[in-house]
Design a protein around this nucleic acid. Structure first.
Length: 858
RNA sequence: GCCCGCGUGGUGGAACGGUAGACACAGGGGACUUAAAAUCCCUAGGCCACAGCGCCGUGCCGGUUCGAGUCCGGCCGCGGGUACCA
């Protein structure tokens, strides 16, 4: 009997699958199709243990679906454009292209030994001119369909490096390289009209039954449908053209609590005033000296500037409100102007207290619920109850005195419409998607700027517009902008000399349609209608929760836009039927304090674990253990999958990343856990090999073993179907133990062993092929039909029922499975623990849940 | 700040509202061995009068229920997202 040797068996079976083209996505047979997709990786350089977990989950599904008779599409590619390649070029002088393709080569070499059932013939990278050329064709079609337009938008501008910064490149309001204070600068940029689809993107969430509820909720909140009132305040003594200030509010019922009007520093009125008031100009400039991220804006100290102007309250023209410019009002949302009601908005209250503006409550808690309520005007916090809650209006103007916020809002809108004060409108928080990036390593936007014709789309026959190779990164900024010749082209319309657009596309564009391209990666058009109709939708999409909003929303928009432009069928407007979001792989951090008092981190290899404590191998000093931290190179708590595979084999790595944690949660990688997984696989190898050689006599334990086998088939199948991989694996551990201890004959043990090998095959495909062969299975286990549990074989005759007294467990009884309820009840009542608790009395109530529990209530 | 999650033994975790701690790691004890490794077996939430039909226990406080880790409300801590990181 040979010992378990993954180094020998894994390459052997990978070769066998390759030669048989086992995992080619093939639609020649008339079977149902199944498309499983894991979010493709960014080619950072090396695969990460998190990738292993992500792709193993997809692989389990892919292999399982193959064995249940599906034509499976399971592709892989690379999300290859983006900033890290340019950063690497700046740091070490290479070229983003070489850096990226070298990384892809390395990562493919690292992924293949893991034995994923991927159709590698479909692989592409988004930086392949063939892929981005098709993306440019999509852009032109979207442009023609009116789905793209240009407008001004603000970016983070580094005034020293003279370059645009990403939000993550802004640290505490300063450029990460130059350290200069970041400014906001306006540029003309391209936008996708995603907001036109806001309602549809929101409503269609209801149909996504196999998406996590939390993701749908996050998307719904992001899209943010709100019902409110749009109206105008008329101004007093304002500059010409500013007779009215349009505002939008979701709480028109609080109009009588208005205490000021606020406008964004980017509001036209603020800009107009800044022209001849240097103080206002200075204030607005200061507000603009801030990053563009919502987080930064929201967390910044709320500041304002009194313009000296006033507006009249719409219900009482003698009531004047001051107009302030405030740094927390976004020009992008609503009309860029609000009215502040400090009593019912904490932010407005903070603002009012800071600048000594009036506070006036509009409503108070409903009768009988006041408790220790303190009015905001008397020092209490802003009173902001949920809108469905009933409150009592003390300064209402529409609807009853006691009503819910929702009812009051509707009544207020109705009142305002009747009196010509404003209109009820539905708005969305979702903004159009700005896709322009002032960077080199991205998909060029295929348009030309001509002095006579304006913005002219490139002709499709001239696609792809290819990135030039001869660029340098020795100075900051976009190399396309300073390239000597690349910009110079003839206008596609009039033929006169013109300039190419040098902005490239947001990398989210690249990842918004790759799933469609996988269905026909070599097609001469973005998709092949026939292939798309067959393979779409993605039946199961798997990826990180960090993509819950942006990537998934953009992809949903793209699928709609691709349908409108004829690239996807109607049925693929919602491209991902089921979504699963997996957790991270974490690892302990080993930390000590260096001579300079700063933390020093140590690689796991440098540390020895004894009795739960950690010591340096070198010198033996004890180090601190910080458990379950996100892996990061700087903290030195990374685990290299290549190391794990060479040490234990791919099957061990695959088995372990699935075994210890539910897939949606984080999993902590521990060396001891991997070791144990490996020992278990070796044990399985030995037990199965023994079973293969056992004699063929029938034994009394046969029936027990086979019943356990059918129960295992049932549980493991359920586990895989419901993403309960860890539970499926726990079941397989138990069944292995049962098999090893079984007093069963050779035939039963071989049947059990064959089933075990098969049930493990999605997780440990190489070992399973090997065992399948040892047991004389026909062909490849990868091609064998999935076993089906025989329900009749699973039935147990008796069941153990816990007996509770007042909800506390006091004993248990073993009864026939189908015993009548009253019989169970009388049996339970004669249980000694119950008799003692009753002490001669009678129970108030006896609850019998058949097959579950008995609860005696005294 | 705002939106969304998560919190259970020494550790990772299991548990259709129904026996809390399955399965595994680390620990303890034992078998085999000249010895070790490997393998196998047993044990294992805490507390106590140390073994009982005992008490306590799923981040904290309160509620619903015959029964709550699970549902509801409020807090605390950690993580993800926050529109130019992917």
């Amino acid at each position: 009997m040979s010992r378990y040797d993954p180094a020998a068996i894994e390459p052997k079976w990978q070769k066998a699958w390759d030669e048989a083209l086992t995992f080619r996505a093939d639609r020649s047979q008339d079977r149902p199709k199944y498309y499983v997709l894991e979010m493709f990786p960014y080619p950072s350089g090396r695969i990460h243990i998190g990738h292993v977990r992500n792709y193993t989950m997809g692989d389990v599904i892919a292999r399982y679906k193959r064995s249940t008779g599906h034509n499976v599409l399971h592709p892989m590619g690379f999300d290859a454009f983006g900033m890290p390649a340019e950063n690497a070029a700046m740091a070490s002088g290479g070229h983003p292209k070489t850096w990226t393709y070298d990384n892809i080569d390395t990562m493919v070499d690292q992924m293949k030994p893991l034995g994923f059932s991927i159709d590698w013939s479909r692989m592409f990278a988004t930086c392949d001119p063939d892929y981005y050329g098709q993306q440019q064709a999509l852009f032109l079609d979207f442009l023609e369909a009116g789905l793209v337009y240009r407008k001004n938008a603000v970016v983070n501008w580094d005034p020293v490096d003279m370059t645009v910064l990403a939000n993550e490149q802004v640290e505490n309001g300063r450029g990460w390289r130059s350290g200069a204070l970041v400014e906001r600068r306006e540029l003309t940029q391209w936008f996708f009209r995603i907001s036109d689809f806001a309602e549809d993107l929101l409503d269609a969430l209801d149909g996504l039954d196999d998406w996590p509820a939390k993701v749908k909720l996050m998307q719904a909140n992001w899209i943010g449908r709100s019902r409110g009132l749009q109206f105008a305040f008329s101004t007093v003594d304002a500059p010409e053209g500013f007779d009215r200030i349009e505002v939008y509010t979701t709480r028109p019922d609080t109009l009588m609590g208005a205490s000021f009007v606020g406008v964004s520093p980017d509001h036209p009125l603020a800009r107009q005033l800044a022209r001849d008031n240097p103080e206002i100009a200075a204030f607005c400039d200061e507000c603009r000296r801030m990053g563009t991220s919502e987080e930064e804006l929201e967390k910044a100290e709320k500041r304002g500037f009194d313009t000296g102007l006033t507006v009249r309250h719409p219900f009482d023209t003698s009531w004047e409100l001051p107009v302030w410019i405030a740094n927390f009002i976004l020009m992008d949302y609503g009309t860029g102007a609000i009215f502040g009601c400090p009593a019912h908005d904490q932010r407005d209250l903070d603002f009012a207290r800071k600048y000594d503006l009036p506070v006036r409550s509009v409503f108070v808690p409903a009768m009988g619920e006041e408790g220790t309520f303190i009015l905001p005007e008397e020092g209490g916090p802003a009173y902001v109850p949920p809108k469905p809650e009933t409150v009592r209006y003390v300064a209402g103007f529409a609807g009853g005195e006691a009503q819910t916020g929702d009812a009051a809002v509707e009544a207020a809108i109705g009142f305002c419409e009747e009196n010509g004060v404003g209109q009820g409108v539905t708005r969305f928080r979702l903004r159009d998607w700005g896709l322009s990036r002032q960077r080199y390593w991205g998909c060029p936007i295929p348009v030309v700027h001509c002095d006579t014709c304006g913005v002219v789309p490139e002709k499709k026959e001239n696609l792809p517009v290819v990135l030039p190779d001869d660029v340098s990164f020795d100075v900051p900024g976009n190399p396309l902008d300073r390239h000597p010749t690349w910009r110079d082209v003839d206008c596609p319309s009039c033929g006169a000399p013109a300039r190419r657009e040098t902005d490239t596309m947001d990398t989210f564009v690249d990842s918004s349609w790759y799933f469609a391209r996988f269905t026909a990666p070599d097609a001469a058009t973005p998709t092949d209608p026939d292939e798309a109709r067959y393979w779409m939708n993605v039946d199961q999409y798997i990826g990180g929760i960090e993509h819950a909003i942006l990537h998934l929303l953009y992809a949903r928009f793209f699928a709609r836009a691709m349908h409108l432009t004829g690239h996807l069928p109607e049925s693929a407007r919602e491209p991902f039927d089921a979504l699963f979001t997996q957790g991270m792989v974490t690892h302990a951090i080993y930390r000590s304090t260096g001579a300079d008092g700063r933390p020093e981190y140590h690689f796991p290899e440098a540390v020895e674990l004894r009795e739960g404590r950690a010591f340096l191998r070198e010198g033996g000093a004890e180090v601190e253990v910080v458990p379950s931290a996100k892996m990061s190179k700087s903290k030195k708590n990374v685990v290299d999958p290549v190391e794990i595979v060479s040490q234990y084999g791919a099957d061990t790595a695959r088995w372990f990343v699935l075994s210890d944690s539910p897939p949606e949660r984080d999993v902590e990688w521990t060396a001891a856990g991997a070791e144990a997984a490996h020992r278990h696989l070796a044990r399985v190898h030995r037990i199965v090999s023994e079973a293969a050689e056992a004699d063929s006599e029938a034994r009394p334990g046969d029936e027990d073993l086979l019943r356990e086998m059918h129960k295992t088939i049932h549980d493991v199948t359920q586990g895989i179907e419901s993403f309960g991989f860890n539970a499926a694996i726990a079941r397989l551990y138990a069944f292995t133990a049962t098999l090893s201890k079984a007093e069963a004959g050779g035939e039963a043990r071989r049947a059990a062993a064959r089933t075990l090998a098969q049930l493990m095959s999605p997780m440990t495909p190489h070992l399973s092929e090997e065992l399948w062969q040892v047991l004389g299975g026909e062909g490849l286990v990868a091609d064998a039909p999935w076993p089906v549990a025989d329900e009749a074989m699973m039935v147990e005759d008796t069941v153990t029922l816990p007996i509770q007294v007042n909800g506390k467990r006091r004993g248990e009884i073993v009864v026939p499975k189908d015993m009548a309820k009253d019989e169970v009840e009388s049996l339970a009542l004669s249980h000694h623990a119950v008799l003692k608790a009753l002490d001669g009395g009678t129970p108030k109530k006896v609850i019998v849940v058949p097959g579950r529990i008995v609860n005696v209530v005294l």
